[in-house]
Simulated scan of single mutants.
Amino acid sequence: MNTYKHKPKNTIQKHIDILKATVLATYKEWAAYRSHMAVSIFVGPVFFLVQVFIWNAVYSINDSVSGLTLNQMLTYYGVVTVINYLTFDSADWNLQMLIRTGKFITFMLRPVSHCYYAFCQKIGHRLLALWVEFIPVYLLFLLVFKINLVPANLIWALISATLGFILMFLMNYCIGITGFWLTKTEGLRRAFIILRDLCAGVLVPLTLFPGFIQKILFFLPFQFITYVPTRVFIGSYELAGISLPIPYVVGMQAVAVIIMFLIYKLLWSLGIKRFTGVGA
């Protein structure tokens, strides 16, 4: 008699299997609608062209702005644009929609946390975006606009971009969690997006803000989403008159990710108690 019993997979292997399955499923799902995603290819270049027109006008009367030359300024916006293609996230909208419609109840019955599942979905979505959005725009900036998109240090740039990727997800997911308290989070989401992009250095480099505002921004986590990965890509970091070595600022970025993860755990433990499955 065969007494062999199948041993359950360890937790790490289980999560790896979930990661692979979810990433592949999400990739295939969005690949069927890749033309919809490809439309965003025009968004980045158009945003960049607007910056070209604005800053060409500004630099026609000034040789430098906050110590940045025209070429450095355009390089900054070029790097910001391609990084945003990598870190784009909609976890906030997805989660609040599941909560509002009551469909989130199905995830309470699954043997994996929704946060991990959503993160795996983001990886699959951004892997597709890598060749649909990122690479075409990267080549456009590099070959047509002649923007230097070669990182000063590839390893540090990849680490910083990855941390920015994770931090963007955690922040957006925390906004989605507010759906446990709010009927709709659309207003909060839009206000947060504006605040996030402004404080993350997407709209303007943070060094253009007045000194006292820069000091506030230095202690906020938003800079670690876009501004820090961009400065790490360029090879130097400065904010509020503080210049830091790249390894040090990437370490700060890692700490910000850990803190945001703890905030997510706190909000989740409080919010999940309020879920009633209304609408399911």
Score class of each variant (00 low, 15 high):
Leu158Ser: 11
Gly78Gln: 03
Leu167Ile: 02
Ile193Gly: 00
Tyr85Ile: 10
Phe233Pro: 07
Gln214Arg: 01
Ile18Trp: 15
Leu182Lys: 01
Gly176Glu: 00
Ala157Gly: 06
Ala191Ile: 08
Trp268His: 14
Tyr237Thr: 00
Ser60Gly: 03
Pro111Gln: 11
Ser35Leu: 14
Ser269Met: 06
Thr226Gly: 01
Asp89Asn: 15
Gly78Ala: 03
Arg190Glu: 14
Leu203Lys: 02
Leu74Ile: 01
Gly241Val: 02
Gly211His: 13
Leu98Asn: 08
Val23Cys: 01
Ile135Ser: 08
Phe104Gly: 04
Trp55Gln: 06
Val58Asp: 01
Ile159Lys: 03
Ser113Lys: 13
Thr183Leu: 09
Gln121Thr: 06
Ser35Arg: 14
Val112Pro: 04
Gln223His: 04
Lys146Asp: 08
Phe88Asn: 10
Pro111Asn: 11
Arg34Val: 15
Ser113Gly: 14
Arg126Tyr: 08
Ile263Glu: 06
Leu24Met: 12
Ala21Thr: 08
Met1Pro: 08
Pro111Gly: 08
Arg274Pro: 07
Pro210Ser: 04
Ala152Phe: 09
Thr226Gln: 03
Ile213Tyr: 03
Lys122His: 04
Val52Lys: 01
Val257Ser: 05
Leu154Cys: 04
Val202Met: 04
Gly179Tyr: 05
Leu49Gly: 01
Lys273Gly: 01
Trp268Leu: 11
Tyr117Ala: 03
Met1Thr: 08
Met108Val: 07
Ser236Gln: 12
Pro221Cys: 05
Leu267Gly: 09
Asn71Met: 11
Leu217Glu: 02
Asn56Glu: 12
Glu29Leu: 13
Tyr85His: 12
Val112Arg: 08
Arg190Met: 14
His15Phe: 07
Ser113Thr: 13
Asn10Val: 10
Leu220Ser: 00
Gln121Ser: 05
Tyr138Lys: 03
Leu266Gly: 09
Phe42His: 06
Leu127Glu: 07
Val150Lys: 12
Met97Gly: 14
Phe218His: 02
Lys7Pro: 01
His6Gln: 13
Leu195Met: 11
Gly251Trp: 05
Thr81Leu: 10
Gly211Ile: 05
Phe224Pro: 00
Ser243Phe: 00
Asn148Tyr: 09
Lys184Arg: 14
Val137Gln: 02
Ala161Val: 15
Ile12Arg: 10
Asn148Ala: 14
Thr230Asp: 06
Gly271Ala: 05
Cys115Glu: 15
Lys20Glu: 07
Thr11Cys: 04
Leu95Ala: 02
Leu217Ser: 05
Ser64Tyr: 09
Met171His: 07
Ala152Tyr: 09
Ile166Trp: 01
Leu188Tyr: 03
Gln253Met: 04
Ala21Arg: 09
Val144Arg: 05
Pro210Ile: 03
Gln121Lys: 13
Ala38Gly: 06
Ile258Ala: 13
Trp131Val: 10
Met260Ala: 10
Arg126Ser: 14
Ile272Phe: 09
Arg100His: 13
